[in-house]
Design a protein around this nucleic acid. Structure first.
Lengths: 342, 342
DNA sequence: CTGAAAGCGCTTACAG
DNA sequence: CTGAAAGCGCTTACAG
């Protein structure tokens, strides 16, 4: 009560010198008590900490930053033109990142990059507005990575990464794909069609491998399946669906939610009923798949956790002592109407 | 070429003192040349600026910040639990904000707030990580606003705002609603039903007024329409649609995209065809309305521009000289299949 | 028009 | 265990 009073009356914002004076010690001592570094007696530490708590003192981040050459900000690269499909991913991810960053008293600054234009990245880096950066699979631009290496800015990548030198975190695409495919197979489906996108993407490869793993485990060959890759856009999808139907597929596994949306459109257009005539599943979930008619079986990754891990990794890179649980971001296989056996 | 060389060889990061020495002037002079403030000869300014350009010097933001008590960061409050519906709004908005901020060499830091929990806001404020804040209609919490006033942190609100003391920017809800409603009326529809949400929201009021304006302009009374407010959730929407149909409405105007989605669901469930049996329009657009079957007539606001304006306003509050064009964020009325006269 | 000096609020060798 | 002092890289009265 009285403390509140004091705060309200004075409204004063203390600095380290004020505290030193009030307590009759040196700034050095106060600084040490706060940081917990250097030799300092328990008694002094306690006195300082109590004063700080009572007066709700917060060190000036700018000043500390200048002294330690730190901004206590982390940059998150976001593609300006991410479609409505991608955005939920970023939202979730950002949530996890912010949460973890806050835990260590860091904040997230957004860096919107447009295509191959690195202007904004350069601005943020040359202005030293961040201590490190997080970028995601959606930022294809290896130019960005090259730039950051050159400038020696620590960064982590969210998504598949072939280069072991680059710290990265990723979903368990392969494992999850295998699991979903296995379920389809065990449901008694005889002929699966896998419809996937650009094969040069690593995520495509991972999911493909997972799909194949499921066959292998059952003593079958992935060649028993119809695999149609490099599908890009509705026209491609339409042809892919045609091929799947011609080859008598009784189940279609779509590599991601975008493709799946297109496939659903094609099937509707052709008057093929789901799940009566054919089962459909997606290796990446989104809200539309959940609410569409019928709802579509899919894999939901724990993107929030993925963001947290990315942030943790970056913090570690920056020399913060993070206590990580070493868990890998999980996923759920969600069986919905589109794969029901009637 | 040679400049490149120099940069690469040295890789040196200059500070203001280095420059002063190299040029045989004082730090003061260099600082003045850069800021463009204070008396200084054109000749000296040019020399300094040339050196800076050649060596790609960037003032240390942290140091400047400490001296001027500025972070050159703006905070953007984001609701943690914004649904998939809300997010496109934030994405667009954020784009505009970032773009404008970058123009004045500010950056955006994200502050995720969850419900009424102000922890993150307090953290960012007491740590002085931002010079000001932008919050949007989705942050209902007036507690947040109260906190910021108390702490004297400048902020602007995106969305309807009754309090004229609080700087805010908003879409032209009333005008846009009137325009869309007018079009419906002029298409010859005899009985419109307006289905809206919580009447305590200011945005609801604005849109309602716009709807009424259209009637007034045609010399009619809004009482000719069926208005059903405070609709919240599918069950409510179902009853509202029932009522509209009973009263022989030949057109339904939904106050926002969420309600519209529900109304579409209800109509489908009831076997009412759009636009054959009834026309449907929404006073707020989203991707689903654009791609649904049939596509739905709607109002698309220029959210990107809205974000820019919000940022401009905040920058002005912070004392930056912004050159604004005084334009108001626009909108488009997009007539799609759902209102076609067959 | 220009500069020396103090100041922004921290951290951290260095010396006791 | 503690403190005086220098330093982080800028800005800005103040004095010329």
């Amino acid at each position: 009560m009285e403390i509140e009073q004091t705060r309200k009356e004075t409204g004063k914002i203390y600095n380290i010198e004020d505290i030193a004076k009030e307590l009759g010690v040196s700034k050095t001592t106060v600084s040490r008590a706060i940081s917990g570094k250097g030799r300092i007696s328990k008694a002094t530490t306690d006195r300082v900490m109590e004063f700080i708590a009572t007066h709700d003192y917060r060190p000036n981040t700018l000043a500390r930053g200048l002294a330690k050459s730190r901004t206590y900000n982390l940059g998150m690269l976001m593609p300006m033109e991410c479609g409505s499909m991608d955005f939920p991913f970023f939202q979730e991810c950002l949530r996890g990142i912010c949460e973890m960053a806050a835990k260590y008293n860091y904040d997230i600054v957004i860096c919107m990059v447009s295509g191959k234009d690195l202007t904004q990245l350069q601005r943020i880096v040359t202005n030293r507005k961040v201590d490190g950066l997080i970028l995601s699979r959606a930022i294809v631009s290896s130019a960005a990575q090259k730039y950051m290496k050159e400038k020696k800015v620590p960064f982590v990548v969210i998504g598949p990464n072939s280069n072991p030198d680059i710290p990265s975190v990723d979903n368990q695409n392969r494992k999850a794909s295998k699991e979903l495919t296995s379920v389809m197979l065990m449901k008694g489906l005889k002929k699966l069609a896998l419809i996937g996108g650009d094969q040069t993407y690593l995520v495509t490869e991972s999911r493909y491998n997972g799909f194949a793993d499921a066959y292998k485990e059952l003593g079958k060959s992935v060649n028993d399946a119809v695999t149609i890759m490099n599908v890009n856009g509705y026209a491609d999808a339409f042809r892919a669906v045609d091929e799947a139907l011609e080859k008598n597929a009784d189940g279609i596994v779509c590599m991601d939610d975008v493709i799946c949306g297109e496939v659903l459109g094609c099937l509707r257009e052709k008057g093929v009923r789901i799940p009566q005539d054919i089962k459909v599943a997606s290796l990446y979930d989104n809200h539309a798949l959940e609410t569409s008619l019928p709802s579509v079986t899919s894999i939901r990754f724990d993107t929030n956790e993925l963001g947290k891990k990315a942030c943790e990794k970056l913090l570690e890179l920056l020399g913060e002592k993070v206590e990580t649980d070493g868990k890998v971001p999980g996923y759920q296989v969600i069986l919905r109407e589109s794969t029901q056996i009637l």
